[in-house]
C-alpha cells in the first residue's frame, strides 16, 4: 500500500539576506493511510515549515516528498489545511467561508449549500452561518477553518497547532470532537502541536522533532484505546517519555 505521506531525507534552507538558515535537515518519516500522527517539537524548529512542504506550498531544498505516491500538488490532491494563524476570509460569512474550498475544488454550485451546512453542524456552529468572522470567537473561527477543510473531503488533513489559542475546556472539547470526526470519516491526519498531553491524547504515533535544523528525534507508538483517560498510569507514562525527549531538546536552545 502507498504511504499517505512519505518524506525521504528532506531538507529546507531559507536564504535571508546573505546568510542561509537550515530549518529542516534530512528529515525522513512516513505516515500510513488513515493514521493519526502528531508532531511535537520546540518552538521555531520548523513545524510550520514542514507543513508548507507537505502541502506543496513550497518545494524542499533537497530530498523527496510523496503524497500517496505523487509529489505534493494542491491542484491534484485534496488537502485540508488548518493554519496556525487566522485564515478566514473576513469579508465572507461563516457559511461563505466554508463554501470557499468547495468553490475552488469545483464542486457543483447546487451542492455547496447542503455540504457547507453539514460540516457547520459537524463542528457545532449551526445558527452562526451568517455571522462574519469578526463577530465570532477565536475558537469558533478555528472550527470554521476545520469545517472548511473537511468539507472538501480531503485526502489529507494537516493541522498546525489548531487549538493553541483555546482555553483548556474548549481545547479538550475540540480534541474529542476531532477524534470523533476522524473515526467517523477515516482520514489521514498530520497534527502539529507543542502540547505533549494533546499529542498523547490524539495520536496513534507521535514524532518528536529535534531543535533546528530539525530531524526526527524519536517516534513513539501510543498503544492506548480511544477515548483515552488523561489520568490513567499508561497515559502519564507516555506523556513523561515524550516530555523527557522534548525537554532534552529545549535545554539545548
Amino acid at each position: 500500500m502507498k504511504k499517505a505521506i512519505l518524506l525521504e531525507s528532506v531538507s529546507k534552507k531559507y536564504e535571508v539576506g546573505s546568510s542561509s538558515l537550515e530549518v529542516i535537515k534530512s528529515l525522513t518519516f512516513d505516515v500510513n493511510e488513515n493514521e493519526f500522527v502528531c508532531i511535537v517539537g520546540p518552538s521555531g524548529c520548523g513545524k510550520t515549515t514542514l507543513l508548507r512542504l507537505v502541502s506543496g506550498l513550497e518545494p524542499p531544498t533537497s530530498g523527496r516528498i510523496l503524497i500517496f505516491g505523487d509529489p505534493p500538488d494542491p491542484r491534484k490532491q485534496r488537502f485540508g489545511v488548518i493554519f496556525q494563524e487566522d485564515s478566514l476570509l473576513p469579508w465572507r460569512t461563516v457559511i461563505g467561508n466554508v463554501k470557499f474550498g468547495l468553490e475552488l475544488q469545483g464542486y457543483k454550485e447546487s451542492e455547496h449549500e447542503k455540504i457547507a451546512r453539514t460540516y457547520i453542524e459537524l463542528v457545532g456552529l449551526q445558527g452562526f452561518e451568517n455571522y462574519y468572522p469578526h463577530q465570532i470567537s477565536g475558537g469558533m473561527k478555528k472550527r470554521v477553518a476545520i469545517a472548511r477543510a473537511l468539507a472538501i473531503n480531503p485526502d489529507l488533513i494537516l493541522m498546525d497547532e489548531p487549538f493553541a489559542d483555546l482555553d483548556a475546556q474548549t481545547r479538550s472539547l475540540m480534541q474529542r470532537e476531532l477524534l470523533n470526526i476522524w473515526s467517523k470519516l477515516n482520514k489521514t491526519v498530520l497534527f502539529i502541536t507543542h502540547n505533549v498531553e494533546e499529542a498523547v491524547f490524539l495520536a496513534q504515533r507521535v514524532f518528536v522533532l529535534t531543535k533546528r535544523p530539525s530531524r526526527v528525534k524519536q517516534i513513539i507508538n501510543i498503544d492506548l484505546p480511544y477515548p483515552r483517560a488523561r489520568l490513567s498510569p499508561p497515559f502519564i507514562s507516555y506523556r513523561e517519555r515524550i516530555l523527557t525527549a522534548f525537554h532534552e531538546e529545549l535545554e539545548g536552545i
Binding site: 494542491p74 488537502f79 494563524e85 476570509l89 475552488l104 475544488q105
Partner: peptide
C-alpha cells in the same frame, strides 16, 4: 499571506487567487 496560502492549498490558481482573495 496566510489567506493566499490558504487559497493555494485548496488548489486555487493565480487567477482565482487574484479574483477571490
Amino acid at each position: 499571506i496566510t489567506l493566499i496560502q490558504m487559497a493555494k492549498t485548496f488548489g486555487a490558481d493565480n487567477k482565482k487567487i487574484i479574483a477571490r482573495v
